[in-house]
Amino acid sequence: MEITTKDYSVWYDPEKATVFFKGFLRLDGMEAYQPIINVLNIAAENGSVITLDMKNLEFLNSSGISMLSMFVVSLRNKGNVGLVLKGSNKVLWQTKSLRNLQRLMPSISLELG
């Protein structure tokens, strides 16, 4: 399962139970993010612990972080799926916002490299 445009790629690798993000995500509004939410939901249904690898996601706009927040909340409410976030110290927004997501779901395991 993969969504690719000239700006970004989002794909789900079931074997690694990981959703990979790459490039520049700046879709216009929450509705535009629906296809990506679908990918995340499929990942959440198919694994007891899922990983979102955003090391190569250089840019994420506010709609994007909202989408991610809501997904985290929905995962927390489900209660039976663990979440690992992989990010990069070299990308400024990741060092701040990914840590903030832990406030919504304290059990998030954060790996910043």
Binding site: F59, I65, M70, L92, K96, N100, R103
Partner: peptide, 20 residues
């Protein structure tokens, strides 16, 4: 509480990105 947190998060995120 969640929405407040999301709002804060989004705003902070926006600020970070904007600054950047």
């Amino acid at each position: 509480a969640d929405l407040e947190a999301i709002l804060n998060l989004t705003v902070e995120h926006g600020d970070t990105v904007e600054y950047h």
